[in-house]
């Protein structure tokens, strides 16, 4: 039985039998594109953001860049980081063909292992190679993820509905893509945003530290993934690694406390700056025109925040040259 099951999962890239479980059926399309797509889209501007960019409609950005709406595509997903971005790009290699700019939105947790890793990281459990599993920093993570690779009793446990959908799933066509992404993003995360709006500043600081500045080891897999993303970029494609502004309170706390998790992250990311790769930390919110009402709870944006963010993106992208900003 073990041999049969293992063989089944060896053919995962082709069989499309897998389907992640940790989101509802109105899933974020970036998650679906973690699996191979026949005929992936070829946007000019590809946004690979976190939940900060999930609810955003990028049509104004397309207009500002003199592009059609479908030429600006967002594959943002919650808790996005370099490893899943690399996975998605690897499994859909044609997607970067003709891309002018790839935008990755930065947050400090992205080079670290998650506090609840590996149980919570179903993409990693589903797709990481054995080598990547053995590269996890914690012994427990190495053992669990390797055991799951051997016999995926954790990562491949799906509901009946997902097994049914996963078999022979045909993913959304190019034409439907951009609209569907925004609809899905809005409907899926509205409840979460509503809940986060109820947090007071003090509570949110604590949540922020836990979620975004975890005191967990640096992830060798994430670091390697970022290098591989950079290597994947075609010659004419600019990679923009940008951390949009945070609310004033968080900005002051981060700069005032000079937390290692944040300064290390900044230093590391800035070391990635090179021709073709631009790194930008929008540290001071007021310098970019962001005010309190532009943020939901301090990290995610309101509609007015998104308008300013897209204007910022347009300015930055238009200012990009072959050598970066």
């Amino acid at each position: 039985m073990f041999v049969a099951v293992r063989l089944l999962f060896v053919f995962r890239p082709v069989t499309l039998l897998n389907y992640p479980e940790d989101h509802d059926s109105r899933c974020f399309l970036a998650e679906e594109l973690g699996y191979r797509v026949e005929g992936p889209p070829h946007p000019e501007v590809l946004i690979m953001g976190t939940s900060r960019l999930m609810e955003c409609c990028f049509d104004p950005l397309a207009e500002a860049l003199a592009l059609r709406p479908e030429e600006v595509m967002s594959l943002s997903r919650p808790t996005n980081s370099f490893w899943p971005i690399r996975l998605l790009l690897q499994r859909n290699p044609g997607m970067l063909d003709g891309a002018r700019v790839v935008v990755i939105d930065l947050l400090p947790y992205q080079i670290r292992e998650r506090p609840d890793f590996p149980e919570s990281d179903t993409l990693f459990l589903g797709y990481a190679s054995l080598r990547e599993r053995l590269d996890c920093s914690e012994l427990r993570a190495r053992v669990l993820t390797a055991a799951d690779w051997l016999l995926p009793l954790w990562s491949e446990r799906r509901t009946v509905e997902y097994w049914r959908k996963g078999i022979g799933t045909s993913l959304l066509s190019e034409g439907d893509f951009a609209v569907t992404m925004q609809e899905l993003a809005r409907s899926g995360s509205a409840e979460q945003m509503a809940r986060m709006r109820t947090f007071g500043p003090g509570s949110f600081l604590r949540v922020f530290y836990f979620l975004y500045l975890p005191l967990t080891p640096i992830s060798a897999n994430e670091v390697r993934a970022l290098d591989e993303i950079i290597d994947m970029m075609p010659e004419d494609t600019q990679l923009l690694l940008i951390m949009p502004p945070l609310i004033e309170d968080l900005h002051e706390a981060l700069t005032g406390l000079r937390l290692e998790q944040y300064t290390d992250f900044q230093d590391y990311m800035r070391s990635m700056q090179r021709p073709g790769v631009t790194v930008l930390f929008c540290d001071e919110p007021s310098a970019y025109g962001f005010e309190r009402e532009d943020f939901v709870e301090g990290v995610h944006f309101t509609d007015s925040g998104y308008r300013k963010l897209l204007a910022l993106f347009a300015d930055v992208i238009n200012g990009l040259s072959a050598e970066g900003l």
């Binding site: 049969a4 491949e156 446990r157």
Partner: peptide
């Protein structure tokens, strides 16, 4: 028996 074990292992709600 294998099918039973596979269902136990890989299907859950």
């Amino acid at each position: 028996y294998g099918a039973g074990l596979v269902i136990l292992a890989f299907v859950r709600e």
